[in-house]
Amino acid sequence: MHIIKSKFLFLFIAFGFMRLSAQADFKLSNFSLTPLAYNPAYAGSNGGISLTSVYSSQWVGFPGAPKTILFNGHQAISDRLMGLGVNAEIDKRGTEEETKLVANYAYHLYLNNYWQISMGIKAGVQNYVVDYSLLSIENPSEFIAGIGEQKTLNYIFGTGFYLYNKNFFIGASIPNLIKPNLLDSRNSIISQQSMNYYLSSGYKIYTNENIYIQPTFLTRLVKGAPVSTLISMNFNSKNEIYASANFEFKSSIGLFAGIRIYENYLFGYAFDKSITKFNSQNNGIHSFYINFNIEGRDNRPCSCYNF
């Protein structure tokens, strides 16, 4: 088989395996900076208004490499007792394109003067498209999925919580309790994602009044796939300069740097390098961040993450 056809076939098999085994696609290192994407209880946690946009290009230099555009927006309301948010995602992977639009709601409850708990729900839709015409199929008549674009609309309903104070947080979530399906031209199920479970925690260690470091972890559990755990060490100086180093077991290492200008705007860049046997076949993962934040930077009620 021609070398180009071989590459496309490899990508199709690889992405198909990820879909069948329910491996989530977005890197944990990006998820750690956009927690609303997987935990609705994060909505309103900054005490103000926060808008974040991310562009991520994975496996640079590899044919059909994943590209993701992510938007998160959330706001605290009702004297910071509730939060509303929305997240949208466009994820392209070889022959696949996945689009999500999700609304989030969270309620923040005071347990005492020191601890709070937030409980959230998310609901939305997922449009999943596979364009089989981009593949080189030797016998199209025997390909049961059908040739051309196949579209599947799935619904999303998820939940999560955070237990937190000014320095510590722990959270758990299931972003979608409804297993998404991929349908063929006859509306028969040819694959189904399993549920993703997330667990996260972190603790702020202040070196002085304005500077702290925050070790965190984010773990993703999916049936049929290896456990993924990201360990991060985050640095924050006066809520103006941000930095982070991360390590995902048997997957990647990475760095993030960001600076806030004009008080409300943060610009950041992250680079992750694969430490798997494919590291020589790609040029890493490049991610660009823009965040707009008002009211909540200096007196945020939740210690969860930096933004």
Rank of each mutant, 00 (worst) to 15 (best):
F15T: 13
R19L: 09
S21V: 12
D25M: 07
K27C: 00
L28I: 02
S32N: 12
L33H: 11
T34A: 14
A43N: 07
G47W: 05
S50K: 11
T52G: 03
S53I: 13
S57D: 14
W59N: 06
G61I: 06
P63M: 10
P63E: 13
L81F: 04
M82N: 13
N87L: 01
G94M: 06
K100W: 08
V102M: 09
Y105A: 10
N113H: 11
I117Y: 06
I121T: 09
K122C: 07
N127F: 06
V129A: 07
V129L: 14
Y132C: 04
E138Q: 14
F143V: 08
A145F: 10
E149F: 02
Y155S: 11
F157R: 01
K166I: 00
N167E: 12
F169W: 07
P180M: 05
L182Y: 09
L182G: 09
S185P: 00
N187L: 06
N187I: 00
S188A: 07
Q192G: 00
S194W: 01
E209M: 02
I213M: 08
V222C: 06
G224M: 08
A225L: 03
T229L: 04
I231M: 12
K238R: 14
N239G: 12
I241S: 08
A243Y: 05
S252T: 05
G254W: 02
R260Y: 04
G268C: 06
G268I: 05
Y269K: 04
K273D: 01
K277Y: 06
F278L: 15
F292H: 08
N293G: 03
I294H: 08
I294F: 12
D298N: 15
R300C: 05
F307L: 12
